[in-house]
Design a protein around this nucleic acid. Structure first.
Lengths: 188, 188
DNA sequence: AATTTAATTAGTACCTGGTACTAATAACAG
DNA sequence: CTGTTATTAGTACCAGGTACTAATTAAATT
């Protein structure tokens, strides 16, 4: 014997493919599908280091929610459209499934805040800038699929303290307004 | 007895919130969290028609969110610690690499806002609640690895309008304060 | 063909996270 | 003090496994 019977090798390939295309198959179902005993399936999974059904479920489920749970990461929330550092800028955020309440498909407020806040911070001409305070108003509910255009302008600056006004619109209708106080931070 | 003891009603609300925000909790863990026996949890789930752990996993994994009850997962940023629906609650957010500025490892403000906002919304005893406005202050920079404990209290309520105060701390030091105006939304 | 080795199947004890049920006790209102 | 509700305890049973031993079957080597 070379190393492994071809029958076994073939079955292993099939097994991997089956589970890949449908992780919700139990050993019993797999045994039926491949025409072998349940014990063989279990030995196969052991060899191939394929976790059991319930572990696979958990893995898939966690992969689904881990993204949902957290806010969009990265330096900027949304897509930068235009920027004059120290002056003004704009970004676009398209509301996806993970940003809305499942019940009514309205975007959670903090996503709009995140877009505005990260844009405000991006305008500051410093190594790092931190938000000190903000006053925000959510004028209209934003729905799944909406393209939110945020426009930010530095309205005031004294030393390291900046005031940034952000207005977000969906199709020319104001949905969000915010006034952010941002501080530039020196870097060593 | 009216219809149900208040203790039970409250526990039921908590149970729903806990499972909503984290479907990966077993009855044993829930029993621990709510300070009752595992049997009580099971009776509660039966009454509330909340499916068992493995069924919930399957729903999440299959992306069906849930057909049984309108349990919308991942609606909270952070981990729910305690809640009295309609009164107060608290959550914990641990700052990870994805939440901080690469340069100085300070958390981006909108993550703290998101934790506070989602907690404020979770307190409202309604099908859906939307943030109308907010005034927030970032008192201290929050660093990578910090455990941010947010405590929210409903300070005022007229009809569908609620005012929720949120104070977030890292090791007893206030890092964030916010006053949110939230509106309850009726569902058809 | 006989033997050796690999592969498969069978069977057992045990595990988690439950359901479904019965029974006993605790809490509380009238 | 008595009912009612709520909670806890305990049992049998289930799915879908792990981990192990032993027996059987198939294939390869001598």
């Amino acid at each position: 014997m070379t190393r492994k019977s071809t029958a076994k090798k073939e079955r292993h390939q099939k097994l991997v493919k089956f589970i890949k295309t449908n992780p919700f198959l139990t050993d019993e179902e797999l045994a039926e599908l491949l025409g072998v005993s349940i014990q063989t399936i279990r030995l196969d999974r052991l060899e191939l280091k394929i976790p059991e059904y319930r572990e696979r479920l958990k893995y898939v489920a966690k992969g689904d929610t881990c993204q949902v749970k957290s806010l969009s990461y990265g330096e900027l929330v949304g897509e930068l459209v235009d920027i004059q550092v120290g002056k003004s800028g704009s970004s676009i955020l398209t509301i996806n499934r993970d940003m809305v309440f499942k019940k009514n498909k309205v975007a959670r407020g903090h996503h709009l805040f995140a877009q505005a806040n990260s844009l405000a911070v991006a305008l500051i001409d410093a190594a790092v800038a931190l938000t000190g305070s903000a006053k925000v108003t959510f004028r209209q509910p934003v729905k799944l699929g909406d393209r939110v255009v945020a426009e930010a302008v530095i309205v005031d600056n004294h030393d390291k303290k900046y005031r940034v006004s952000v207005i977000s619109k969906v199709k020319d209708q104001v949905v969000f307004e915010g006034l952010f106080t941002v501080f530039a931070v020196e870097e060593a």
